[in-house]
């Protein structure tokens, strides 16, 4: 490859693949405006009534509320636990820091379905089946790797001399961390936070097994709705989700830069 120039067949291939990635998203958004009771693309007519229906549907609204509560609780818990751990790992205050860091990332490749059923059995044994806090803990376990990854990367890129300067100037470890290190890694932490929130919000596999009776998160609601039959209201609520995700992604990219996304 000559510097800069990328052959056009390659560009074409990449464009096609990108189109493939975007296709279902486009389809869902288009279907949400369809006037017919079933999906046609292109839509036979344009209407916003499905959005109105969704935003007034108590089932969906409750699901959105539940998802937000769960995501917020899980993210706060995960951040509170992960950040101190990452700080200790970054400074190699523990033996085999690298191994421990890898272990903390393990929930990423561990079969989610196994976590789900394991916790199902576990909560049944303890009589805690359907407990909200258990669900929060489960989500915290699942989203921790995202926070650990971005926090460790952020700390690694942080100039150690700055923390040392703060300490010599009279700040103890905690003050130095709060006044100098945190502001320095806030971009990474923000990216990790948003990814964790989104991941928790989107989580289905484990959540399926742990939901309190009568409650559901938004994705699970959509999941069960699809099982009952496909109609444009599903497309509408999905479109709202797509918009929210896109917005958050743009915000993260603005604030933290594209590198942090990778």
């Amino acid at each position: 490859m000559t510097a800069g120039a990328i052959a056009w067949p390659l560009r074409l291939a990449a464009a096609i693949i990108l189109a493939f990635l975007m296709l279902p998203v486009l389809v869902v958004v288009l279907a949400a405006f369809s006037t017919t009771d079933y999906l046609t693309i292109p839509p036979a007519g344009w209407t916003l009534r499905w959005f109105v229906q969704v935003l007034h549907d108590p089932v969906y609204l409750q699901a959105i509320r539940f998802s937000l509560d769960l995501a917020a609780a899980a993210t706060v818990l995960a951040m509170a636990m992960a950040i101190p751990a990452c700080y200790a790992l970054h400074h190699c205050w523990l033996p085999a820091s690298e191994t421990i860091a890898a272990a903390l990332l393990s929930p990423l490749v561990f079969p989610a379905v196994v976590i789900g059923v394991a916790l199902l059995q576990y909560t049944a044994m303890l009589g805690l089946r359907g407990n909200f806090f258990v669900l929060v803990l489960a989500h915290a376990v699942i989203i921790t790797p995202y926070i650990v990854r971005t926090a460790l990367a952020g700390l690694a890129g942080f100039d150690p001399a700055l923390e040392e300067a703060a300490r010599v100037l009279g700040a103890n470890r905690l003050s130095a961390f709060l006044l100098v290190v945190l502001p320095g890694v806030r971009a990474s932490l923000f990216a990790g936070l948003v990814f964790a929130l989104i991941t928790s919000f989107d989580e289905v596999t484990v959540t399926l097994f742990l939901l309190p009776p009568g409650q559901a998160t938004l994705p699970v609601t959509i999941f069960t709705a699809i099982d009952l039959g496909v109609d444009p209201s599903i497309a509408a609520v999905s479109t709202l989700l797509i918009l929210a995700t896109a917005l958050l992604l743009v915000v993260v990219e603005r604030f933290a830069g594209p590198r942090r996304l990778l």
Partner: peptide, 8 residues
């Protein structure tokens, strides 16, 4: 969301 993508 996985579900949204599968739905598409």
């Amino acid at each position: 969301n996985l579900v949204v993508r599968s739905f598409g």
